[in-house]
Computed example of a mutant assay.
Amino acid sequence: MMQNNANEMTIQNNLLKVTRFVDGDGIILKDIITKKEIEVRFLGIDAPEMSYCNKIKKDEKELHLPAALLIKLGYLSLNFLKDQISLGEICTLVQEKNNLVDKYGRQLGYLILSDGRVLNEIMIKEGYAKPYNEVFCENLPIYQALNLQAKNSLKGLYSLVNIF
């Protein structure tokens, strides 16, 4: 489980409200003080895409799975995410100082639920996302171990496919 220690490596924002879901690894949050909305991509995880795009074409070739199946898996991942957190719920975003935004300008971070659980970790542990190693993440080794356990236990998407 991720340690939520306040140190010089992290930035924490506790006053965020869920306003929209993007996909299985992304969400829109609103700062309840400034009213500014931010798009957040969950650091260290990757869920299947939900539409036909360049990434899904790449995944189709690499994984030898049809795009239609990958899109179905993407929707299953999103539905699982929606079961974990509700619109209007207050949460905390913890970011690694050296990894604040991705190449698309989205904020990168760990989403801490009101009960203290880390949403990124839940998505991996339950088999609805996999570790993402194309952007540095302090928790990648933990996520890799959790992913292996989910895969071996046929949890989540792994109950349907052995790779995604």
Rank of each mutant, 00 (worst) to 15 (best):
R117Q: 13
F136W: 13
N139H: 10
C91R: 00
Y104T: 09
K103M: 09
E49P: 03
I33H: 13
R106I: 07
N152W: 04
P66S: 10
E60M: 10
N139R: 07
V40C: 01
I90N: 14
N99C: 11
G109K: 01
K36F: 13
I85R: 03
P66E: 12
L70G: 06
A129K: 01
V135D: 09
K103A: 09
L15P: 05
E96S: 09
T19N: 11
S86C: 11
Y132K: 06
E126D: 14
T92H: 03
C53R: 09
M1H: 12
R41T: 01
N120A: 05
L15H: 15
A47G: 07
P48L: 03
L81S: 00
G74E: 03
L69W: 08
V40L: 07
T19V: 15
Y128W: 04
S114R: 10
A47K: 02
M123D: 02
L16R: 05
Q84L: 11
N79Y: 08
G116F: 04
V101T: 15
E8L: 12
R41A: 00
I122H: 00
E89N: 11
M1E: 13
I90H: 14
R106H: 03
N133C: 08
T34K: 08
L16G: 00
I112L: 15
D59H: 03
L63F: 06
G88M: 11
K82D: 00
M1W: 07
M123P: 01
C137H: 03
Y128G: 00
L100N: 08
D23Y: 06
Q144V: 12
V94L: 13
P66M: 06
N4L: 14
Y132P: 05
I90R: 13
Q95T: 10
S51D: 09
G109L: 05
L93T: 04
L65V: 03
I45L: 10
N99W: 08
E138C: 07
I33S: 13
N14G: 07
M123V: 05
L63I: 06
D115P: 07
I28G: 04
L146I: 04
K151R: 13
Q95A: 08
L15Q: 15
F164I: 00
G109W: 07
N162R: 08
M1C: 10
F80T: 01
L70I: 12
E89F: 12
I45P: 01
N162F: 07
L87M: 12
M2W: 12
K17M: 13
A145T: 11
I32M: 14
V135F: 08
K55Y: 10
I85M: 03
S159T: 05
G116L: 06
D25F: 03
K58A: 12
V94M: 15
T19E: 14
G156I: 00
L160C: 02
N5V: 13
T19K: 12
N14W: 06
D25P: 06
I124A: 01
Q95E: 10
S114G: 02
I71C: 01
D59R: 06
Q84E: 14
K151H: 09
C53M: 04
V135G: 05
S86H: 13
L100S: 07
Q149T: 13
F164C: 00
E121L: 08
G116H: 08
Y132W: 10
I11T: 13
P66V: 10
V135S: 09
G156E: 02
E39Q: 14
S51H: 14
